[in-house]
Design a binder for these strands. Structure first.
Lengths: 132, 132
DNA sequence: ATAATTATGATAATAGTTACTGTTTTCGAA
DNA sequence: TTCGAAAACAGTAACTATTATCATAATTAT
């Protein structure tokens, strides 16, 4: 899989590189479009998949029907707020023992673990009842 | 949310109740249809959501673009095979401490945790290179 | 039995994503 | 520095999973 440079991909990367809010393809699209008005949505999708397939991004499926992307590729977990939908980075809560246990139990091989914690985030707890 | 009996919902439940393979709406549809040929796909979706919203099913988003349903509602984790796509039940690998830690770190409230282990399942490890 | 409520089948609509196509850009080699 | 193959692009069509609509039918409380 040999990639060639493109300013579109660069712009996508520049946008997402330091984000911690796990944007969707559409969010990336509408933001990148501010500086590059005729980039196409297909290009955004294509490049996000490409960046994922080359290990620069991770995709998150939290259950809201949209794929979110995460430029932080070191192992960590996520908190998903059921109220505001925010996805917040957490430290890695997994253990090596659990992985080994899973492998022993299934006879398979684990190469990744993803954990999602669902609930109300800090600010939604504070505002409980005031907003939704 | 008051439910009325329907033989369609009953048939859907009868099909999925003891399944451990986490079928999708479409799988439920094509199976229930064998005995109830003119049940509609919309009815299947509506009832799966209803069963989920009333706590009889859980939905799984493993990243394959389709929602899977799980009739086992006690806390447990899942193994997702990257090769054959199978989703295999695992024991709960989470800890109370991790949940408390997440709550402390975020100031939020956790009501659920979902962990997915990805890799090759036992039989795909055995057949590595022979099938895909 | 009746009326209110809920569910249904059939179908249309939506949303997110992927595929196609003809043109443009990139980049290694001549 | 040009040339040509490979890769990427914009624009758009197509696809898939899911949800919404609506007129009719089944269920259930009175």
């Amino acid at each position: 899989m040999s990639l060639k440079y493109s300013k579109q991909r660069q712009a996508i990367w520049d946008f997402i590189e330091h984000r911690t809010d796990h944007p969707t393809a559409d969010t990336v699209y509408s933001n990148v479009r501010k500086n590059m008005p005729n980039i196409s949505l297909g290009t955004v999708y294509r490049n996000l998949v490409l960046l994922k397939d080359t290990g620069r991004l991770k995709a998150l499926d939290v259950g809201d029907g949209v794929v979110h992307f995460d430029p932080c590729i070191t192992p960590h977990d996520h908190f998903v707020c059921r109220c505001c939908g925010r996805i917040i980075d957490l430290p890695d809560t997994g253990t090596q023992e659990a992985v080994l246990g899973v492998q022993a139990a299934t006879g398979g091989r684990v190469d990744e673990r993803r954990s999602y914690y669902y609930g109300l985030c800090g600010s939604c707890v504070e505002n409980r009842g005031l907003m939704n």
